[in-house]
Amino acid sequence: MIMQTGKNWRWDPWREMERFRREVDSLVTGTRRLPAANFPPMNVFSGDEDVIITSEIPGIDPADIELTVTGDTLTIKGTRKPQEVREGEKWHRRERGSGSFYRSVQLPYNVDGNKVQADYAKGVLTIVLPRSEAERPRKISVTKGN
């Protein structure tokens, strides 16, 4: 489920093509690629001064999430450990995924890497990315000429 609603979110046809190619691949081969390209799912909220990204990654140790910001790109990396099974325990159902994930997202503007805040609660990661000071729109007053 992808919705493009933001006016300042750049639509990238190549990214869409890549996504489509992967879907077709998975249909043909019956397998999905690892690490899953669309995990963790993200929601992006834009404001005038910052972007807030939320991501659902249930049951992970926050120390296992690695976030990096370079310019206008946010990269999220991590590993979701599989449910541990003790000796003598047997599986009935296994729907929860596990494994490593890696995702890169392009943000609508450059971000001040030092001010990025990330918080993990209730299985949801919330990242607040303030717009870099140098890029904030500035009001320029027009002086009257002679």
Partner: peptide
């Protein structure tokens, strides 16, 4: 629900 004051949804991959 997810709501952030002064922020609009620009991209959504999951529903709440």
């Amino acid at each position: 629900d997810q709501k952030f004051e002064g922020h609009g949804v620009s991209y959504a991959e999951y529903g709440v």
